[in-house]
Amino acid sequence: MVKRIVPALLVGLLLILQAQIWFGRGSIPKVTQLRHELTELEAKNRLAKLRNDQVASEVNDLQDGLGVIEELAREELGMVKPNEVFVQVAYGPGS
């Protein structure tokens, strides 16, 4: 009787372990699914990073562009910001 219990117990443990491998929380199908999801998320992250870099570039271009526009407006149109004092220096004919 004991000779049959030990092998049956070992076979039962083997079946439990196999069930965990194939159907448990860390099973092979679950790991494959998670790897697939990871690949998709990494692709989405790459696209989002590319878009973020484009937006950052556009923001920098706009900031630099506004500086150039402001400089031209000050020189050619005499633009003065609020709370600024405009000082004009006139040079005479002998300067």
Rank of each mutant, 00 (worst) to 15 (best):
residue 44 K to N: 01
residue 44 K to R: 05
residue 44 K to F: 00
residue 44 K to V: 00
residue 45 N to F: 10
residue 47 L to C: 09
residue 47 L to A: 13
residue 47 L to P: 07
residue 48 A to K: 12
residue 48 A to Q: 10
residue 48 A to T: 11
residue 48 A to C: 09
residue 49 K to F: 10
residue 49 K to E: 13
residue 49 K to A: 13
residue 50 L to K: 15
residue 53 D to Y: 07
residue 53 D to I: 04
residue 54 Q to A: 13
residue 55 V to M: 03
residue 56 A to G: 02
residue 56 A to M: 02
residue 57 S to W: 08
residue 58 E to A: 11
residue 58 E to N: 10
residue 58 E to P: 06
residue 59 V to I: 13
residue 59 V to D: 06
residue 59 V to T: 11
residue 61 D to P: 00
residue 62 L to G: 01
residue 63 Q to K: 10
residue 63 Q to W: 09
residue 64 D to F: 12
residue 66 L to P: 01
residue 66 L to R: 04
residue 67 G to I: 06
residue 70 E to D: 15
residue 70 E to N: 13
residue 71 E to A: 07
residue 71 E to V: 04
residue 72 L to Y: 05
residue 72 L to C: 03
residue 73 A to F: 04
residue 73 A to Q: 06
residue 73 A to E: 05
residue 75 E to A: 11
residue 75 E to S: 14
residue 75 E to H: 13
residue 77 L to K: 01
residue 78 G to K: 00
residue 78 G to P: 00
residue 78 G to M: 00
residue 79 M to Y: 11
residue 79 M to I: 08
residue 80 V to A: 08
residue 80 V to R: 06
residue 81 K to P: 04
residue 81 K to G: 08
residue 82 P to S: 02
residue 84 E to T: 06
residue 84 E to Q: 09
residue 84 E to F: 06
residue 86 F to S: 13
residue 86 F to G: 11
residue 86 F to W: 10
residue 86 F to N: 11
residue 88 Q to D: 15
residue 88 Q to E: 15
residue 89 V to W: 03
residue 90 A to Q: 11
residue 90 A to L: 13
residue 90 A to I: 11
residue 90 A to Y: 14
residue 90 A to H: 11
residue 91 Y to W: 05
residue 92 G to R: 01
residue 92 G to F: 02
residue 92 G to Q: 01
residue 93 P to N: 05
residue 93 P to F: 01
